[in-house]
Design a protein around this nucleic acid. Sequence first.
DNA 1: GTGAAAGCGCTAACAG
DNA 2: CTGTTAGCGCTTTCAC
Lengths: 346, 346
Amino acid sequence: MSQPTMEDVARLAGVSRALVSLVMRDSPKVSNHSRTAVLDAADQLGYRPNLAARILASRKTSTIGLVLDDLHNPFFPDIADGVNEAAEQSDYRLLMNSAFLTPASEQRAVETFLEFRTDGVIIVGSRLAAGAIETAAESVPIVVVGRPLRSDRVDSVNNNETRGARLVVDHLVELGHGRIAHIDGGRGAGAAQRRAGFVAAMKRHGLRPDVVSGDFTEAGGVAAMRELLARRRRPTAVFAANDLTAVGALGCTEDAGLSVPDDISLVGYDNVALAATHHISMTTVDQPRNEMGRLAVATLLERLEGSRSSVARHVLAPSLRIRSTTAPPGPAARRKRAGTRNNPGR
Amino acid sequence: MSQPTMEDVARLAGVSRALVSLVMRDSPKVSNHSRTAVLDAADQLGYRPNLAARILASRKTSTIGLVLDDLHNPFFPDIADGVNEAAEQSDYRLLMNSAFLTPASEQRAVETFLEFRTDGVIIVGSRLAAGAIETAAESVPIVVVGRPLRSDRVDSVNNNETRGARLVVDHLVELGHGRIAHIDGGRGAGAAQRRAGFVAAMKRHGLRPDVVSGDFTEAGGVAAMRELLARRRRPTAVFAANDLTAVGALGCTEDAGLSVPDDISLVGYDNVALAATHHISMTTVDQPRNEMGRLAVATLLERLEGSRSSVARHVLAPSLRIRSTTAPPGPAARRKRAGTRNNPGR
DNA sequence: GTGAAAGCGCTAACAG
DNA sequence: CTGTTAGCGCTTTCAC
């Protein structure tokens, strides 16, 4: 498995090593003749440039590192798609890592990229302390996505959490709900802001904000919902911190023999594909994930090209998607709706 | 952003560069005194070893590259979890890449790892031609997961596709189904084997195998199901090549005003978390994904440590999970079941 | 234990 | 266009 080097290629092609280097970086100042000679030789040998050597000599990696909090949450792959598209267009190599939902694992992932000296790092849904991010940002440009950060040195791309939460509460209140609970995202990225947005919106309506803890996972949604259903006075509507949590809550509710939205209305956040399926048809808040991914790359590139040195804090507008998990509360509504809905069965 | 080097650390600590190197690799032959001196200096400078230089000099990366076909299919994150756990335990760094469902993108991902000279590469759900994989395997040990490969040089970890497909067909036939269609996985990994298994099992029962094409995605499931529903004689049961496809088919069926399993039975493959939710409750075939991930790493390590030079072809046993999307065919069954099921609504 | 010296495979000026 | 010459930052003998 010992690999051929430039030297080998040069010898076989009968040229100098420097020429091979030029060809590998497709420099324009190489004659067609020598180019094909070199390429042929490389091909014959199965030569592949050694990235480590290349990076070491050129002091740049042309690589951006992407850290995703949780691969099981479709939100992250959606962002990754956007990042990938943009990176590809700008000739940057992409390397990914999952944070597997823990700060320790996330720190390790970031550390790996720092050691690699990737040109930039994009962290999606970071659970790291702001200080840790800022420290890392001292050695490499970092863009944080989906985690509001009030740093004046680290760029970020977010949706307006406050606005999103308010859209949800307003919708629910408009339907006539008063007892609304929020299953939050715990220590997850953006959870604090979403929670604060919920609390503020509730107060605006003169309602008592009711928050139970979750963790942005389906299992967390199940547990939190179980808690809510066990109460003497159940909420009539529940706003889950993300779609995954909402799906968990949905299953739990139905397991308990209750129906959504007839007995309880349910709202998620993110608008992942799952929420849009006929079967789930979840009312939720949309974040423009693909765009956020692309924007993260663009923001990073501005830093890399030095075209901007001030902080960029992009805040995109979320939008409410009303589907079938929200309805007016109370038995009256249930009766009224009974005739008009087609029931999937199962 | 210019980073400190070993030289800087050595100077600050008042020792030689070699000593710093030893400390960074926690060699036992360093006095406690100099060790702390070096560590302090490194800390103070924010020093981080340069991986490229390290790799270049040591000729090993202690890194394994993981290529996943499609992040949107929970099957892949599930495998990644297993890989991550095992890699962590063996002190290997993990770097991931998505193939974004296309061979070209997958090839690029693999190429990146080859250039990095990662110690090994695990490809999950490969869409590459067997030849391409074998070629790559000449420069680095590769383990292919979820893609049966009859190479005698590349290790692989799979579930028994033939067996899995047969479990499905047998179950359906036992329920009384005769017109069973298979929405296949197109050119996706393992699709051919799953399809062949379906065809063989159908023939064993003296039934006519009916195959329409899909692509392992939800959208593909919708399209294929639409085609099936448009026929004069609809199948009474559908076996989708994976859960994602099945979920698409499910939504499409219900959009058409039909009910699962009363009008059509549906079976998936993979047993991803989504299939197990109360709401979907899909009959499917389980693959031990976490175990497959761990096994892939173990298989790779055997190669890296030279404890095995022959090919390893692990084939794990799939198992059927009967849930709520399968039932006997026909209106009689429907009537009989009507009274006994609780209907989730929505 | 510690230091000196020789590369790892490549890029990047710089002459020719 | 082509060849020469220095390193990039680290590991790795090998003496001391």
